[in-house]
Design a protein around this nucleic acid. Structure first.
Lengths: 199, 199
DNA sequence: CATCGATGTTACTGATCGGTAACATTGCTT
DNA sequence: AAGCAATGTTACCGATCAGTAACATCGATG
């Protein structure tokens, strides 16, 4: 029953299936068997690539974190030397994400931290490191964009984005999450700039 | 093995134990046996008061929602006829909650919606109804407090609060969640008031 | 063709968990 | 004391699930 077409190798198919099922149904609610089946393979092959379900979860989350980082790199590449536009570009992307039909379950990283409550769970480290890094990058970007009190502005934006994502589950996609970009832009537009502009 | 001291009845003990365990460890990670044991009773008695684990979860969430509603009533009673002070009182309470040691797991309602991913799960209705009501009350309170564009201000506050709670898990209690009250107050102070003030 | 590594298949274990049955016990009421 | 309702105790069922063993098959490579 080998798939003759140039199908991606099993490891990639497993990661792709894990991505969809973990996000849609929750990590605890998805069995490794279900992932293997969705990946058109079987449990044994899965366990030959990932030594445990926890390791698969860690790989899943690491992949998401890497994509998040790539978004920042994209912003920098798309608008080099223009931090304010980079900032608005990222906020736009976050807002678009919240409006996507397939995103009704919010931030997969945050969800994982909630589902895997054990303080020692390795997946929690991945989430914490990633979110902290995002916040630091945000502070740096807001500062580079010349806003006064960058920590305050960055924290407000951070909470707006996190709140928009989590509230997709409770108030739905028509709720405040849909207006994230507008809210964030109005916040930026009314935020004072630093006196000294960059050379 | 009856408890002679004037102990609360088993139903209340079960709800109290469920409250602590569900919040700390997550709903899916806590067995009904663990709850019964923590409540100093047993599984049979638990099932005589709740026909299923889902019903116990629903009662747990309904209790939390009722407490949330009570907070709004407290605010109104504490500062009658002064919606702006009511608003800041509520934000203060939300900020204090985020700073509590025992609140490191964020909003129990939002967590439940994430853990119980099945769209038909009855617990999701409880969360959605509650969050939507909170948002509506927030809009009404902001409007009553005389702010211009109350929907916008209310949505910003709503997202700030939700974001503060969810980010407790990822960036920790020392993160932006700790500054929720300060951020919200600065937002309110810089928000324009409606031109016509109330009689 | 022969070999070998990767993959597929089946079956199994051990543990956990939601839920139930049957029976014992307690404590209050009359 | 008798009776009754609530509670406690033990044992069990059926299902699910993570993880493993043993063996069969395929595909490329020599």
């Amino acid at each position: 029953m080998k798939r003759h077409p140039d199908q991606p190798p099993p490891r990639e198919r497993i990661l792709q299936a894990a991505r969809e099922l973990f996000y849609r149904d929750g990590i605890n609610a998805v069995s490794v068997d279900a992932i293997a089946t969705a990946a058109a393979t079987n449990k044994m092959t899965l366990y030959r690539h990932f030594s445990s379900k926890d390791e698969l979860v860690a790989a899943y989350l690491s992949g998401l974190a890497a994509e998040g980082d790539a978004l920042w790199d994209n912003a920098r590449a798309a608008h080099p030397g223009d931090p304010d536009t980079q900032l608005r570009y990222l906020l736009k992307r976050a807002s678009q994400f919240a409006a996507e039909e397939s995103a009704g379950r919010g931030c997969a990283l945050a969800n994982a931290a909630i589902e895997l409550a054990e303080p020692r769970h390795p997946a929690r480290r991945v989430v914490e490191v990633h979110k902290r890094k995002q916040r630091e990058r945000l502070v740096a970007l807001v500062r580079a964009a010349g806003y006064a009190r960058p920590e305050r502005v960055a924290d407000e934006l951070f909470l707006l984005v996190e709140g928009a994502r989590v509230s997709l589950q409770s108030v739905g996609p028509a709720g405040p999450g849909a207006r994230l970009y507008a809210l964030a832009c109005e916040l930026l537009d009314s935020a004072p700039k630093r006196k000294a502009v960059k050379a």
